[in-house]
Design a protein around this nucleic acid. Structure first.
Lengths: 132, 132
DNA sequence: CGGTATCCAAAAGGATACTG
DNA sequence: CAGTATCCTTTTGGATACCG
């Protein structure tokens, strides 16, 4: 049934914590952790809250985070199915660090944008035209 | 001449800070920032220190981090060429956060490993055989 | 040495259809 | 609703060859 990629390749040559770091900082991992830090969410709530994430990627991300022990999955045996996702204690620690980094990034965005403009302008100068 | 990908797609539909976050948490971005936190490095020093990174990926990573204003590139006009990379103040802040997250991940690896075993075992139980 | 350019294999990830 | 399975496109990233 195949559980999930999210960087499974090179796994043999990499240090194991590197993989975990990639799980929590992956495109969807970050967004899921931050949402769950706020409160538990159902599958489709997460999907809507994040927006533009395919079912496949959300499922994959949640399974990976669950397997790593960051997310708790509570599947109620009702019809229609209802599954709630929440953070474990370990997951909360991870989520808080990730959120801190995300917030820092937002705070510093103006510096980054300025740096990019400077970089692009000096480049354009000596590149001459032909940048099309 | 094309500067660099490192997640450039969907760029139009994503919030800009998300991109920066991906730059600093990317596979090679993390390793570069942590090495440079220690001290400045030449291109080939970084390559050796990190190990198993292709020239292409290292170049791309450094260019992206330079453009974002995290890394300073000092190319000495000598022959043979000598280029030193170091962190800017902004880069040092980023690197410290990233390192904190990386260290946290290492500290918690035993918990993660245990969680994975538990996950895999309960799965295997009700999956029966056929897991090959 | 420190790159750039090109080609190609592998992986990520979206769309769709289907299921319990 | 909450997935799983399949197909197919986009992106990533290594190998190689060449340049200032």
């Amino acid at each position: 049934m195949k559980v999930s990629p999210m960087v499974s390749a090179h796994a043999t040559t990499m240090c194991p914590s590197r993989l975990v770091l990639e799980h929590v900082t992956s495109r969807w991992g970050v967004l899921v952790l931050i949402r769950l830090l706020e409160r538990p969410h159902r599958f489709s709530e997460l999907r809507r809250a994040i927006g533009r994430v395919s079912e496949k990627m959300l499922t994959q991300t949640l399974q990976t985070l669950e397997r790593d022990g960051f997310v708790h999955r509570d599947a109620k045996p009702v019809i229609p199915p209802r599954v709630d996702y929440s953070l474990t204690d370990l997951g909360r620690e991870a989520a808080e660090q990730v959120r801190a980094l995300a917030l820092w990034t937002e705070r510093r965005m103006t510096d980054v944008t300025a740096a990019r403009q400077a970089y692009d302008e000096t480049r354009q100068a000596h590149d001459g035209a032909r940048t099309r």
